[in-house]
Design a protein around this nucleic acid. Structure first.
Lengths: 192, 192
DNA sequence: ATCATTTCTTAATCAAGATTAAGTTTTTTA
DNA sequence: TAAAAAACTTAATCTTGATTAAGAAATGAT
């Protein structure tokens, strides 16, 4: 499948793969298209796959006690997204993963992933690097949440990812940045 | 050095090491004792090492614009702590790492780490797993910050890590949990 | 093109937690 | 063991952002 080449390209930005390794990898993954609002994972299910977003946008969210969605992560082009806790333990997940736009996804299930780690040593390095970046990004995000006001956070995000902001509804941005849609409206109202 | 055995033991909770690999690893690491309030890293320096806490407690913090410390992470027994951004890029760090108690540390510098990853393949897997856990913990922490009140956060932390709470000054806990020491006092005052 | 649904806005009231400031207790150091 | 420094407490006031509620605008489906 030609679409999955995007994954190979991404991996090879970090490590080299032999032709044989490329082949083994391609045989292990599952390419899938998913429509806006469809779910890859729903609360209560075991998260069986690690998902790589080739094109599009998905969100991972959790239901708050108040019954609202809290967006924990977005996944866009070239990002991996999964609930590692459920993925590793095979216990039901507390999270949901849903397409925000029609998206193209590569999925690898846990068993295949473990097998691939054994047969393709450099994949281990690739995920080490990917996870290190994800961890660092998460720590930085936490830092922004603590030490910037909601308004600063919005402006910061807005200037850092202006094109992404265009792609998602505002109430999702609010959910991701940790405040209410009403407050986001208020901030935007101020400007003009 | 017998103290460094704790690191080997920790690694072998996740992957197997041959005697030869153990030896190579031990030759690459640096054991060091550090007194309370001494720094492993100070803002502006390049973070040259990844630190493993054998015994004791360190904190990683960043100076807020208001001139206060925001604690980003604690490192206790069997935790790795470093600023991966600075460590990888060799650019000056924005963070500080300081001992909260007299501590015993194993340090590995970047160059050695890269060499060890090449000579000990299972080390790659070990760090992949470690980073996956760190990432997951960070995501969960973010979730708690968003969806619990300061008071809930305190009680949650307090019941989850009662012994740890005893070890650090309260103002550090407040800094880690994202509120003021005064507010922490207020919460505690309520009880009795 | 029209109806229904989803998303966004505005404004009034409210609450959690910050700030300030002063005083008390505990720990460290000489 | 006394003085100094660090850590903790209390209380009054203030601010940011939540909540509620209603209406307007945009988007999607038929």
């Amino acid at each position: 499948m030609v679409e999955v080449k995007a994954l190979l390209a991404h991996i090879q930005r970090f490590v080299a793969l032999s032709n044989e390794e490329e082949k083994v990898l391609l045989e292990g993954v599952r390419y899938q298209k998913i429509k806006r609002k469809e779910h890859l994972l729903q609360e209560g299910q075991v998260c069986t796959d690690n998902y790589f977003v080739i094109r599009g946008c998905v969100r991972m969210y959790i239901q708050t006690p108040a019954g609202e969605d809290r967006i924990v992560q977005f996944g866009i082009d070239n990002w991996w997204i999964t609930d590692y806790t459920s993925f590793d333990s095979k216990k039901p997940s507390s999270f949901n993963i849903q397409a925000v736009e029609d998206s193209e996804i590569v999925a690898i299930d846990k068993q295949t992933m473990d097998r691939l780690f054994n047969s393709i040593p450099s994949l281990e390095r690739y995920f080490r690097v990917i996870l290190q970046r994800a961890f660092t990004a998460s720590v930085m995000r936490m830092h922004y949440i603590f030490d910037q006001s909601a308004e600063e956070r919005y402006h910061h995000f807005n200037t850092s990812y202006p094109d992404f902001v265009q792609r998602v509804p505002q109430y999702m941005l609010a959910s991701y940045l940790g405040f209410t849609p009403e407050f986001l409206s208020k901030i935007r109202g101020k400007k003009s």
